[in-house]
């Protein structure tokens, strides 16, 4: 059964099918959140929220929509809501102390080797929007067309964003390599 068929079934009252969608999507969404926020507990909670919202707003799913961009759009909204509530619009490492803690967290729970550490620290130094585009296109291998739907922009725009993000990542990565 495709994702869309499952979601239509959920919409039409067969709620148990939501379990199947959870199984298919909870890991990528968890990874999406943790790599944007660099906080595993928060990633856990936000992932949970996505699926609760998916059930709550099941009636808003339309047959002509693709499921993956739809659920990721929901995920983005949840992320944005979270930081708006915490008065940190599109969150950022405002405090040096916070930066230190997050890097320590990267060290402890996310990293297996030096290259990975380099990757995540470079990633962490990007703007959250840039992190997001790299997570979607490179880590989650989403097609540009799908990402365009998630971000509600054109495919050409997605390409530009990807370049900018890779360019920035390259700069951060070169800076770190110099150290």
């Amino acid at each position: 059964m495709t994702d869309e068929m499952l979601m239509m079934a959920v919409k039409n009252g067969d709620l148990e099918k939501a379990s199947e969608l959870f199984d298919r999507y909870h890991k990528p969404l968890y990874n999406f959140f943790v790599k944007i926020t660099f906080d595993r507990d928060l990633g856990h909670d936000l992932t949970q929220n996505v699926f609760l919202r998916m059930i709550k707003y099941r009636a808003s799913f339309r047959q002509d929509k693709q499921f993956r961009p739809w659920i990721y759009q929901m995920a983005r909204n949840i992320y944005a809501d979270h930081f708006r509530r915490n008065k940190m619009l599109f969150s950022d490492y405002a405090e040096v102390e916070d930066l230190k803690n997050k890097i320590a967290a990267v060290d402890e729970v996310m990293v297996e080797d030096e290259r990975q550490k380099l990757l995540y620290i470079s990633l962490f130094k990007l703007q959250p929007e840039q992190r997001e585009i790299l997570i979607l296109t490179r880590f989650q291998q989403m097609k540009y067309e799908e990402v365009a739907q998630v971000l509600d922009c054109s495919v050409a725009n997605v390409k530009v964003k990807v370049h900018r993000a890779i360019k920035q990542l390259r700069e951060k990565f070169l800076e770190l390599e110099k150290i």
Binding site: H26, V34, K35, H44, Q48, M110, R138
Partner: peptide
């Protein structure tokens, strides 16, 4: 470098909660 991304596993309480 981007290829060094590691898939993180959520703990089982995520599924139980859902």
């Amino acid at each position: 470098l981007l290829g060094h991304d590691r898939h993180l596993e959520p703990d089982s309480s995520l599924k139980a909660g859902f």
